[in-house]
Nucleic acid binder design. Structure first.
Lengths: 200, 200
DNA sequence: CATCGACTTGGACGGGTGTCCAACTCGACG
DNA sequence: CGTCGAGTTGGACACCCGTCCAAGTCGATG
């Protein structure tokens, strides 16, 4: 019955939703279950969010923002292209490994949204966000290290996402972090092999 | 009311389930909806399958079997290692592109099963199947072309799955087949770069 | 032709779902 | 200190879910 600022409720509910989705999957993350996980009555959910779908959208937006920031930091002071590319990929995995729930929830929600009329755009939005984010890194690499590629930049960016998506999917199932790191190392090698010329 | 052999009902229901899952997602693929899609009363579902979960298991098993056969055929008469590796990857995509519903359903069910107590083992089973299947191809490459790798065979196999999973995830969202083929071509190059020595 | 067991299925069971309303509570402002 | 509107929430609404039973219906077998 105590009054809580709407922003705090929102944060609590989003955190609770993340936990529930990671534990039981989106399909079981109902408004009742999420509200209970947050220690609130069910009706509070709809006082904060317009709908269940709207909440999922906010969840995903928040995750993407935090993820991009984490990777950008991991790569801040890379001195060589190899450090830059490897640092970005391994930094991404560091974050995923540190908070698996976030990665699980993201994949789950994206998969779930594909077939949902209300959330159909979410999956596409996520990839647009990713593509833009990775394209930014590729551009940064070109600028900082004077790299030229043997294939279009867009293909380089796409290949990076193939690596992260593929590694994530497998890692979420077997949780073999060492193997995931080896796969990313091979990916880094493949990426560097796409360099045509480079200036220090 | 007409009598139908149980095997036929089973096949009809599995085909209907595939359609519904591809169209509306696993979460909406209820026994009622699937039975209706197959033109049967709801109760027929449980005359054929012990449970909803058991049906999903059969669905996945059938898909994996067909998929492995298709890729094996695509690679039958490869003359060079490059043809072999590229053929396997592009052959896999050929099949996925020819029948997107199958790939969609597979990914959806695997994602859904992760959090389901009844189906928890399914995701792991799928990857075991894949890993064994790809390991077979790697071994075949070693034998047919006298290949030796710079990394353990298991890592090569894992990298192949990273490529297919990553490409599939993106392709299912944007359906850009040309881009998917370019990404697989880059993957093939990366794979061939892992070869240490080779004998004709 | 009678019988019997495999096949078929309408309908019920107990449960879960997203959403929303009407009634309540309370803190701040006039 | 009274009022008023924002905050809170129990409970209802209409719906969908997996599962299963009991009552029917048929085709083959004796």
């Amino acid at each position: 019955m105590q009054r809580i600022a709407v922003a705090d409720r929102r944060a609590s509910l989003l955190a609770a939703a993340l936990r529930v989705i990671a534990r039981d999957g989106v399909a079981r993350a109902s408004t009742r279950v999420i509200a209970a996980e947050a220690g609130m009555p069910t009706a509070s959910f709809h006082y904060v969010f317009a709908s269940h779908a709207a909440m999922l959208e906010e969840l995903v937006a928040g995750i993407l923002e935090a993820q991009a920031a984490a990777v950008a930091e991991a790569v801040g002071e890379a001195g060589t292209l190899h450090e830059f590319a490897g640092g970005a990929l391994q930094g991404w995995l560091d974050r995923a490994a540190a908070e698996p729930a976030v990665e699980i929830a993201l994949q789950d929600v994206v998969a779930f949204s594909r077939a949902s009329p209300d959330l159909h755009h979410l999956a596409a939005t996520v990839y647009e966000h990713y593509a833009a984010s990775v394209a930014g890194f590729v551009a940064a690499a070109e600028e900082r290290f004077g790299v030229r590629w043997t294939v279009p930049s867009a293909d380089v960016a796409r290949f990076v996402l193939v690596l992260t998506d593929g590694v994530a999917a497998r890692w979420l199932v077997d949780r073999d972090e060492a193997a995931a790191r080896r796969a990313l190392a091979l990916g880094t090698r493949a990426l560097l092999a796409l360099v045509q010329e480079q200036r220090p």
